[in-house]
Design a protein around this nucleic acid. Structure first.
Length: 780
DNA sequence: CGTCGTAATCTTTTT
DNA sequence: GATTACGACG
């Protein structure tokens, strides 16, 4: 152990050796936080802590795997095996397999991915007879997802007039019905979506104190990486579990918080010291990754953010080359510049392909890069985007496997009941859904009793349905004895799925056939891999869980030497010798969707900070003057982030271009205006640009619920500017409300996030409004 | 009931 | 530019 600890500097050693009590490590980019986490776990074990009692939550499963391997090298494989390590989602999915029965879920519950959830919501919207142009499935999905991440259950929603009003204001008054039906259908299908894995864990720990006690007792040491990106649901789980022993160590960097869009709450890290007594604070500020020029450039950009902790990231590394900025005419030219630069740099510096990364804001940008790299014969690999398991032919196979394991799985059933075509049409399926809802049974149960139920289906179709049931049941029998691989191999043949794909005879068909083959090989590898580990059996259930929660990063083929292409979000935690950040243009990066509030813009800036700090030696920033978007060539102008970098760190490869003067896009529209005007300024800007943007459905923040057995924490929501607003609204103010018109403020009560105002409106009488939800304009 | 062609909508970011 | 939704036709 000593030998390993000698690899740490003093700042890293201190938190590593801090064994007990709550602690927070504020770790700047490239400061070696993974190393600290790894050695800290090894150290705990060397001090006699049982691996069984350590829970370590990481941001990707890949990170967990790598840490585990490194720990195994220090303490031995058999010891490290008992560590609980993984993402929130995968760790709590495992726990829910054991404990889900308390909540009425089978242990083999299905995990719905985004596609499944959205399809289900789509059909619910249709069943309820709602206008799909108003109730857009994607928006409904993200709305419900945010409720769940804020722990707003259906019941809580129904009891919350503010929320209902917010939805009514966006012309979706029946959101609650959709939400209720969705939850109900998931439950009946024995399915949990991604958010449920956290929400249901919270439900489990709150409703069943004995279960909570069991896991509190088990996880005596808890470590959470990337704490700045935890959402409220995750926050509560950690708090509940750590409550007994308070041996909680969180690591993070507020400057790298980039997941607010999926509910991450930066206040979790900002307020950590208030949550526990005697919190030890450690800072890791020395960057070991990047050159002085890169660190300097990144620091000068992040300076523009107002919401941040005090932290000075510095480096003792060499100066290095300056950050290169390059302008091109089109996105195609941009790609060619990147490809030729990689080519040259490889030759000059003897670098391998895998030392290069191309990072972009949106997945769609990968195409131009791919084309250019392919022309130069530079091997590359795209991460993210449509992952392997999302492809149609793969999802089809998986759906069969899911259905075998959990016949209640409605989405899987609907997907495969007529693929390959068996003459079971849409009308038949619709009638089945109606019947299943009527009988309060699953579709599969209705199918099994198709002769007994009251349903308008002709006998020909009924026979086809019976055949389908027989087919699935034969698979279920086989699953009793066969391995997952044998079963999957049989399924693709027996269902005619292989034949169906073979029939196409197109090049795409060949690719899809190869994909299915690769999938089968994957199952084989998995089964063999699992069989080596004694306490797992390599069965179908484990494989499906792995698939549902695997990210593209997890399927790393270690042996290939290729340039990495990915979104900046996916690049978090990674590092590369040379990094290209492409598409640095207004409306793309920062994204056009993120310029309505300062907090959104600041998140974009943090994203840019993350991108820059991925580079060890050389960073390139590129932009194009026009680019294909939605199939059309669109003019663009350089991103404000380029200007924000201090000149001394920059080398303009192409002559610098002045940004066109556009007051609407000027860098500090959120700057030093009077506080009470802040919330309107962006809205007006949006109205002028595109009227549709003024309706900001996604912006409404939720009242956050805290279980009574936990300490109440400050829920002040910086991102909503409510604190600015609260100070300015006083009794006697005249205000304007979007629905109630003008009114006079009678009373102000409450604190922080719960601050309320009693207002007498000309139309609508006296109302009590939560200020963070009510969109009020002060007019006098 | 199934298939093929056209129309509409789409783009943030992910577990 | 690509995927999906829907309508006409076999």
């Amino acid at each position: 152990m000593e030998e390993y600890l000698s690899q740490l500097n003093e700042a890293q050693l201190e938190p590593t050796l801090q064994k007990d009590g709550p602690m927070i490590i504020i770790a700047g980019a490239g400061s070696g936080k993974t190393r600290v986490l790894t050695y800290r776990i090894a150290y705990l074990m060397s001090q006699g802590v049982d691996a069984f009692n350590i829970l370590s939550l990481t941001f990707t499963n890949k990170a967990a795997r790598e840490m585990k391997e490194r720990i195994a090298k220090i303490v031995g494989t058999s010891e490290a095996k008992n560590l609980w390590m993984g993402t929130f989602h995968s760790v709590f999915a495992k726990i829910l397999r054991f404990e889900g029965h308390h909540l009425g879920f089978p242990s083999n519950f299905t995990i719905y991915d985004t596609q499944d959830s959205q399809k289900l919501m789509g059909s619910i919207i249709k069943e309820l007879g709602l206008d799909k142009d108003i109730y857009k499935t994607k928006q409904v999905y993200s709305r419900i997802s945010s409720y769940k991440n804020s722990l707003i259950t259906v019941k809580a929603y129904m009891n919350n007039p503010e929320l209902k009003e917010a939805d009514a204001m966006t012309r979706r008054p029946r959101m609650g019905e959709i939400y209720a039906e969705y939850v109900d259908r998931c439950f009946k299908a024995g399915a949990m979506d991604f958010d449920d894995l956290l929400l249901r864990t919270n439900e489990l720990l709150t409703r069943f104190p004995s279960v909570l006690a069991q896991y509190q007792d088990r996880f005596r040491y808890i470590l959470v990486d990337e704490y700045q990106d935890t959402n409220h649901s995750q926050y509560l789980i950690v708090r509940a579990l750590a409550d007994r022993f308070q041996n909680i160590c969180v690591v993070g960097d507020d400057a790298q918080s980039i997941y607010a869009f999926r509910g991450a709450n930066i206040n979790n890290i900002l307020n950590f010291q208030k949550d526990y007594d005697d919190v030890k604070l450690f800072r890791l500020e020395q960057n070991y990754r990047s050159t002085k020029n890169i660190v300097g450039a990144a620091n000068s950009v992040i300076e523009h953010n107002k919401t941040k902790l005090d932290k000075v990231v510095w480096t003792a590394n060499e100066e290095g080359p300056k950050v290169k900025i390059h302008r091109s005419l089109t996105d195609g030219d941009e790609g060619r510049y990147v490809a030729s630069t990689i080519w040259d740099a490889k030759m000059q510096n003897q670098l391998s392909n895998s030392e290069f990364a191309i990072l972009y804001r949106t997945n769609a940008q990968s195409r131009a890069m791919e084309d250019a790299l392919r022309k130069r014969d530079i091997p590359y690999r795209i991460y993210g985007g449509l992952s392997f398991y999302q492809r149609k032919e793969i999802k089809d196979v998986i759906s069969y496997l899911r259905l075998i394991l959990n016949p209640a799985d409605e989405e899987a059933l609907k997907r495969v009941i007529n693929y390959p075509a068996r003459g079971i049409g849409q009308t038949t399926i619709d009638r089945l859904v109606v019947a299943a809802n009527g009988y309060k049974r699953t579709i599969f149960e209705v199918l099994k009793n198709i002769d007994k139920v009251d349903i308008n289906i002709n006998s020909g179709a009924k026979n086809k349905l019976k055949d389908f049931v027989t087919l699935i049941e034969s698979f279920q029998v086989m699953n009793q004895t066969a391995t997952a691989f044998e079963l999957a191999e049989h399924v693709v043949k027996a269902t005619g799925l292989l034949r169906e794909i073979n029939k196409e005879g197109t090049p795409e068909g060949v690719t899809r056939l190869e994909n299915v083959e690769e999938m089968l090989n994957g199952i084989k590898d998995f089964v063999e891999g699992q069989q080596e580990i004694a306490d797992t059996t390599g069965n179908l259930a484990e494989f499906l869980e792995d698939v549902a929660l695997a990210t593209d990063l997890d399927n790393e083929k270690g042996d290939e030497d290729a340039v990495a292409l990915m979104t900046i979000h996916l690049a978090k935690g990674l590092e590369f010798n040379h990094v290209f950040v492409v598409g640095l243009e207004e409306d793309l990066f920062p994204s056009a969707m993120s310029m309505n509030t300062r907090s959104e813009l600041e998140e974009e800036r943090r994203l840019f900070y993350v991108a820059l700090t991925r580079a060890e030696n050389q960073a390139y920033l590129t932009y194009a003057l026009s680019r294909y978007r939605w199939g059309k060539l669109v003019d663009s102008e350089p991103s404000r982030f380029i200007e924000e970098i201090d000149e001394q760190f920059v080398d303009n490869v192409t002559p610098k271009l002045e940004r066109r003067i556009n007051p609407m896009l000027s860098a500090d529209i959120f700057g030093d205006v009077e506080p009470n005007k802040i919330r309107y300024k962006p809205a007006k800007q949006a109205v002028l640009k595109k009227p549709t943007k003024s309706i900001k459905q996604e912006q409404t923040k939720f009242q956050v619920t805290t279980p009574k057995n936990l300490k109440r924490v400050s829920a002040t929501d910086e991102s909503n500017n409510s604190n600015l607003f609260d100070d300015t609204l006083t009794v006697g103010n005249l205000v304007k409300h979007i629905r109630f018109g003008t009114g006079e403020v009678l009373k102000i009560e409450g604190k922080g996030a719960d601050i309320k105002a009693e207002i007498s409106f000309q139309h609508g009488g006296v109302k009590k409004l939560l200020l963070r939800f009510a969109k009020l304009e002060v007019i006098g």
